[in-house]
Design a protein around this nucleic acid. Structure first.
Lengths: 253, 253
DNA sequence: ACCTGAACACCGTTCAAGT
DNA sequence: ACCTGAACACCGTTCAAGT
């Protein structure tokens, strides 16, 4: 299984929709009374690993989140992580699934407003990814099977079904919408790093390339250089989202 | 620039739409007459590197195409590649762009049949990627700016414009369609390798997971397990393609 | 200009040994 | 059960030296 989740083993019941960013530090004076004083937080855990990895990704990007770097963040060696996480792929999948806790789900579902509710969910999903640098890249090309992702997928399906969309179309559309969000966020997170001084420069380069193409060899690109690159990310994203949702709506009986 | 192409430097004029799979071996007795016999093909070149990398990708997958492995395939050391290719990213981008030569472009464009022609191009694109293992993964999340890709994009835009689609919609739709093809191919190429004995098993696992979800926590997924996983890749791909194209068509005045 | 050997600065993962 | 140091088998890229 590509996502790193052991598919047959994901425990949906254990999912808890909790505050988006649990502190890595456990609450002082919690409900378990311990007589002997424990070392501050010397215990490694899956949650601590995910939190450390997310901190690194936020600050330095997905590529910086190596097993060695995450271990160092937790003052240990890379081998120690393997007691809590099968491999790097599973670790990153866990981070991704943790972040989807930030997605807001409409409650209750209002059949009359299904298109707005669908759009709002997907914007919320985009915002969640966008808060975490280029993390979305990890989600490219993988079916979301993490426990939290499944909750969001279920809600997306529910909103569409409430709106009278067929099961077949809803099933397909859920895939497409997830794909669209992930890809869009990732594309817009490009050029954030090291080599380039901002996505503006990248954007300008692409625009220049399009304008530089001869009308002989690339007549349509040349005639559309403006349209191909204009509009900020938000605008393009919403435009595309509306287009897809309109397509979904048009399939109803 | 993320694709590895130096955007400002791509030379569209140099693009040649040649036979899909040029042999790595130069034609014997070509048009340049050489007196002294040259060593068989001892000269390294960008084309030879791309061909070697593609061979490895076809046989063993994208991850196997390391600089060291490609160099070994050409009986040399990894450092030698850097005279013809800036880095690994550029090498892979060049392979990707080489493969899009296999995409068939309709000629001439028939405005009346724009929807069919658009669909045929995208199926051809999917087939091209599909012939090359998990290569499509390299295209995820990068704007296609290779010289050959630009020709295909230009044709896609041309077909839509001929069909009366607005420039703004065409611009967006071209992005979306490219995204859709790349992601779909990659998703279907998963589970080809090592750990699993075929995508069937992966597919079954996902189906099992969906069926195992409680109707309490995931009512809609549970009620749609069949729809979510049914249909072979081709069917799902075409269904989605039709849906997107219908959405595009519905925007016309 | 092109090619090379050797090195640099990393990776993910395993494994025997500890507690 | 969990943690660790050390090692294994790799990476991409650079660089001085060769031709």
């Amino acid at each position: 299984v590509s996502t790193g989740y052991a598919v047959g083993v994901a425990a949906p019941g254990k999912r808890t929709r909790s505050p988006a960013r649990p502190s890595a530090r456990p609450a002082v004076g919690g409900r378990t009374r311990v007589v002997t004083q424990r070392a501050p937080t010397r215990t490694l855990s899956r949650a601590a690993i995910v939190a450390a990895a997310l901190r690194i990704i936020d600050a330095e990007g997905l590529d910086a989140a190596t097993m060695r770097r995450v271990a160092a963040e937790l003052d240990t060696g890379p081998a120690s992580l393997y007691a809590h996480v099968a491999d790097k792929e599973e670790m990153v999948a866990a981070v991704l699934d943790h972040v989807v806790l930030e997605v807001e789900i409409p409650d209750p579902i209002d059949p009359k407003r299904w298109q707005q509710q669908l759009k709002a969910m997907l914007i919320s999903m985009r915002d969640a990814y966008q808060r975490h640098n280029d993390l979305a890249r990890a989600g490219l090309g993988s079916i979301p099977v993490g426990p939290n992702a499944l909750v969001v997928v279920d809600a997306v399906l529910g909103v569409m079904l409430a709106g009278g969309v067929s099961k077949k179309v809803a099933s397909f559309a859920a895939d497409l919408l997830g794909l669209y969000v992930t890809s869009t966020v990732f594309e817009q997170s490009m050029g954030h790093f090291a080599d380039h001084d901002g996505k503006a420069e990248y954007h300008d380069q692409v625009h220049q390339l399009f304008r530089s193409l001869s009308a002989d060899t690339h007549p349509h690109i040349a005639s559309m250089a403006a349209e191909l690159t204009e509009g900020d990310g938000d605008e393009r994203f919403e435009f595309g989202l509306d287009l897809i949702i309109r397509g979904i709506a048009s399939t109803r009986s």
